[in-house]
Design a protein around this nucleic acid. Structure first.
Length: 453
RNA sequence: GCCGGGAUAGGGUAGUGGCUAUCCUGAGGGACUGUGGAUCCCUCGAGCUGGGUUCGAAUCCCGGUCCCGGCCCCA
């Protein structure tokens, strides 16, 4: 072997590309039925676009480079940021909502393993500027619909960051990120211990993330009530600027201290809108989507603001997630007006590992000819190609060998042309499966095979 | 970044110091220049890579590359 493929990349042979094309087509059809329009963005962008969205730490996993003028560029590691960049610079003044979808290759410098490659394909959709519960329900239902179109029914888990953030608002600021991380990493024991240490066990966080489904919703409602009830004491405590948090306060709720607290208080109020999440859930039921409420889904990211969801599938080894998404606020980060969007991305390669498709594409019609009528055959092929795929021998093979080759290529039909056929103006159409042959005109062949291709 | 297992014709494999490298499949041609996957014949085609040990390396040792699975991470 002289030159190998770069690590984590793949070649796709014709059969595989056919499957991929089919799967993409099926999901694309679903998107069209939901009224989404395709967009495409460059394969490389300014590195800043991605560090702005995900922080400088992502540079480690980005293929970045300087171009000949010294610009810092990056092969795109995902597509949400580019699409939002495009929205901000080109679509901000178009009617809302913008329903967009995309499909493209992305690049990440990561250790390859099952379902993870350095070049991979993402398919996704964004609803920009819609109202939260309606967009969220639509996004989840759409994702489910797309997966179903390729024979996949995954486990859909739905969480709500507003509530988690509100609870975090009652935790001392210096511990918030650790708490968030532990939820995300499912480090349950460490989390329990930390909450105990900082005297926040009573907030119900553990109980919340441990319950799933309807039970989780009840927990959430109860916690939301508690939080609302204790809102006043928190506001009052603002005046005593130096005490961190005090057990003597009647509410027994620790509150953030210092100059942050006023802003945090407002933020909490704005984000604790469980009613909206309940509406999303109700709508999803109306869409007849099968899902699990799961407040453990936090997606660890700053810019998510409302409902977040993930979909998992069986049969993929360690990389089980095939879809992730939620409501986020990115437009303002890229210099646009504050606009809430809901979107999701699907891991196309993982989907291909488990997709089940039935449509079998047939091999082209094989036009076999004797050497003395090669030119006439070429003309006939040119005509037939207006209706369906046709291939001709280019190996200089005998008629017998051509038919043998056609059989080998899996063709269902062979059209035979020789001197006799040219003279009577009809071709011999051979049905390979049974071996029956008929003498038919071009028009008759087109009529006969129209349904087949 | 870490751990484990791998790499032999286009695909799948055997061999574990003596190789003129096994078998299946495949591809091209012919028997059969107007009718198919059979049969027979001919042909093509391989040790990832660089170094080391050795009289001798596909085989043993070391580095690199790539693949598979897992950890970390996962926008």
């Amino acid at each position: 072997m002289i030159i190998q493929r770069p690590r984590g990349t793949r070649d796709f042979l014709p059969e595989e590309m056919q499957r991929r094309g089919q799967a993409k087509g099926a999901m694309q059809d679903v998107l069209r039925r939901w009224g989404y329009r395709e967009v495409a963005t460059p394969t490389f962008e300014h590195l800043d676009l991605f560090t702005l969205k995900s922080g400088p730490s992502v540079i480690e996993e980005i293929y970045s480079f300087k171009d000949k003028s010294g610009r810092d560029l990056a092969l795109r590691p995902e597509l949400t940021a580019p699409v939002m960049r495009m929205y901000v610079s080109e679509l901000q003044n178009s009617p809302k909502p913008q329903r967009l979808w995309y499909f493209g290759n992305c690049f990440r410098y990561e250790r390859p393993q099952k379902g993870r490659y350095r070049e991979f394909w993402q398919m996704g959709a964004e609803i920009i500027g819609g109202s939260r519960p309606d967009s969220e329900a639509e996004a989840v239902a759409l994702a489910e619909d797309m997966l179903k179109s390729v024979g996949i029914s995954g486990d859909i888990h739905i969480g709500y960051l507003g509530l988690i953030r509100s609870i975090l608002g009652r935790i001392d600021a210096e511990h918030r990120s650790s708490v968030m991380r532990m939820i995300d990493k499912k480090e349950r024991d460490a989390l329990a211990q930390l909450l105990e240490e900082i005297d926040c066990s009573h907030l119900g966080l553990l109980e919340l993330i441990d319950s799933k489904g309807d039970q989780a919703m009840n927990q959430a409602a109860q916690i939301a009530d508690d939080l609302r009830m204790h809102k006043e004491p928190q506001d009052l405590s603002r005046s005593s600027s130096n005490d961190k948090f005090s057990k003597e306060v009647t509410s027994q709720i620790p509150v953030p201290s210092g100059r942050d607290s006023a802003r945090e208080g407002r933020k909490v109020e704005a984000e604790l809108n469980l009613v909206e999440f309940e509406e999303t859930v109700d709508l999803l039921k109306a869409y007849e989507v099968d899902f699990t409420i799961d407040f453990e889904i936090v997606r660890g990211l700053e810019y998510y603001s409302g409902t977040v969801f993930e979909i998992y599938a069986q049969g993929l080894g360690a990389q089980r997630q095939i879809c992730g998404g939620g409501t986020y606020e990115l437009a303002s980060l890229f210099g646009g007006k504050e606009t809430s969007s809901t979107g999701f991305g699907l891991g196309f390669d993982r989907i291909m590992e488990i997709a089940k498709m039935d449509g079998i594409c047939s091999a082209p019609l094989y036009l076999a000819f004797t050497p003395d009528v090669k030119k006439e055959a070429a003309g006939i092929a040119r005509n037939l190609r207006k209706s369906f795929p046709v291939i001709m021998d280019v190996m200089g093979r005998s008629l017998g060998a051509q038919i043998k080759a056609a059989a080998g290529s899996g063709a269902d039909y062979v059209a035979i042309v020789g001197r006799d056929e040219i003279e009577c103006g009809k071709l011999t159409l051979r049905e390979m499966r049974g071996g029956e042959q008929e003498s038919l005109s071009l028009a008759e062949i087109e009529e006969r095979l129209k349904a087949h291709f």
